[in-house]
């Protein structure tokens, strides 16, 4: 029953992890996290997909199956949170660039 969404989810998450683990540029790391986030969101949305289901609005609804809106609500919340996290990380990146004039993760590290 593996459908095309789950393949896309796996692909997106592995791409994102690859970017976060192997790319040395701070902005690319942020992009990688966003891509992981998109993969997870796609996963949640595809969990809620029901073929032939209609939107769960009770007024004048026909007697067909309605979709449980929970996964959509989860995805919406997680998109908003993802936006906040991305904005936070990018602002850290801007300020770090102002301090060190470099975006390489290997250049500056807290040790000792």
């Amino acid at each position: 029953m593996i459908s095309i969404h789950f393949v896309a989810v796996a692909l997106l998450i592995s791409l994102g992890i690859y970017a976060v683990v192997f790319r040395r540029n701070l902005i690319k790391i942020v992009m990688g996290i966003s891509v992981i986030g998109s993969g997870v969101n796609l996963f949640l949305v595809s969990l809620g997909y029901r073929e032939g289901g209609i939107a769960p609005i009770f007024t004048n609804a026909p007697q067909t199956a309605m979709v449980l809106p929970v996964p959509q609500a989860l995805t919406l919340t997680s998109i908003v949170i993802g936006l906040a996290v991305t904005a936070l990380m990018l602002s850290f990146t801007i300020m770090l660039y102002g301090h060190w004039k470099s975006l390489d993760t290997r250049k500056r590290r807290l040790l000792e």
């Binding site: 992890i17 683990v21 790319r23 790391i29 993760t105 290997r106 590290r109 807290l110 040790l111």
Partner: peptide, 14 residues
């Protein structure tokens, strides 16, 4: 092991 590079932090998490 303790390189202090953020990539390695995520790598160890994975």
């Amino acid at each position: 092991f303790h390189t202090g590079i953020v990539n390695d932090y995520v790598y160890s998490f994975v």
